[in-house]
């Protein structure tokens, strides 16, 4: 699959934003308001909303006919893209209520604001889940058609969000929160683990083959002539070939930037917590996630390629 930069930016940035606001509101509810100060919560929520919005706006850039984008809310019953659109828009009024509640009541906020916070987190995580299901529901791409995809998207969204929460915590927070660092490390480890499972799972092509595509299974088949002198929409969209050594080295980059460097920085933060260290960890993690999302597309093999001579997907 051709990696579209707008979609990569969207899934990484809005995923981190949704992860940030969900973690902040959920931690606040679970600790009954003891873990994060009101200022931290406010900054985390607003930052989460801004990141999510930036991503969602970028996602409209890949539409070829955006004037019809408003119609995307009407096939909720069948389409994951429609569900994503509906939940991402439902997120805004609820998140706004939550931020308003924090702003108005501050430290004296009651159960109601907490409940709205939990609803915000639920909508944010549901949106991330729907985004992942857009890919996971496609039977045409064996590398995506797996429950590992939504697991990865949710874990990486939460681990990115947890590092962003540390940035907020170190910038405006009163006291350092080692619990938060431990949680972030655990989420990074979970994300790295699930990605490792994914990478080993997609390793061997086991999808449909060129023989079942053309319906002749008596012998090896190869493309003689595609009858095209240049590319067309399907080859541009689906026939993305990156050299194998590049893919392998980028997997290392994903692990180095996305997981190892942020984890080491967080371990270092255990001793001396500074906003600079946390920001460096966030930047490394986002860069790593960007490469991870690029690989997610570049390593996906669509069945259309079978008709253009690929032996197996």
């Amino acid at each position: 699959m051709n990696p579209a930069l707008s979609v990569i930016f969207f899934t990484v940035v809005s995923g981190t934003g949704f992860g940030l606001i969900s973690l902040a509101t959920l931690l606040d509810s679970l600790s009954r308001g003891r873990m994060l100060s009101t200022t931290e919560l406010l900054v985390a929520s607003v930052a989460g909303i801004i990141l999510a919005t930036a991503g969602l706006l970028a996602s409209t850039l890949h539409l070829a006919n955006p004037k019809n984008a408003w119609r995307a809310f009407f096939r909720f019953r069948t389409s994951w893209l429609s569900r994503e659109a509906v939940f991402s828009v439902l997120f805004y009024p609820v998140a706004t209520f939550y931020v308003a509640g924090l702003w108005l009541y501050g430290d004296h906020r009651g159960m109601l604001v907490g409940a709205i916070g939990v609803a915000t987190a639920a909508l944010a995580l549901t949106t991330v889940f729907c985004t992942a299901m857009i890919y996971a529901s496609l039977r045409t791409i064996p590398q995506w058609n797996s429950p590992l995809v939504p697991v990865n998207y949710l874990l990486l969204s939460l681990s990115g969000g947890s590092i962003a929460l540390l940035v907020v915590d170190t910038s405006v927070g009163a006291d350092m929160e080692q619990m938060l660092i431990a949680l972030s490390l655990a989420l990074i480890a979970a994300g790295a683990g699930s990605k490792l499972v994914y990478f080993s799972w997609i390793g061997k092509p086991r999808g449909p083959s060129i023989n079942t595509a053309i319906g002749l299974t008596k012998g090896r088949a190869r493309l003689l002539e595609s009858a095209q002198s240049s590319s067309n929409f399907t080859t541009r969209e689906f026939d993305y070939r990156a050299p194998l050594p590049l893919l392998w080295s980028l997997r290392l980059v994903v692990y180095a930037l996305g997981f190892v460097v942020p984890a080491l920085l967080l371990v270092w933060m255990w001793q001396s917590e500074t906003a600079v260290t946390a920001s460096a960890a966030l930047i490394a993690a986002l860069a790593g996630l960007g490469v991870e999302r690029w690989l997610f597309f570049a390593e996906a093999r669509h069945t259309v390629n079978l008709f253009y001579g690929r032996q197996r997907c």
């Binding site: 070829a64 984008a69 389409s79 067309n232 399907t234």
Partner: peptide, 18 residues
């Protein structure tokens, strides 16, 4: 149609073109 390409992704036969 808003041109999101998702139907083309879902088609195994490459029948749809933007």
């Amino acid at each position: 149609c808003m041109g999101c390409n998702l139907c083309a992704w879902a088609c195994p036969y490459g029948a749809r073109e933007l």
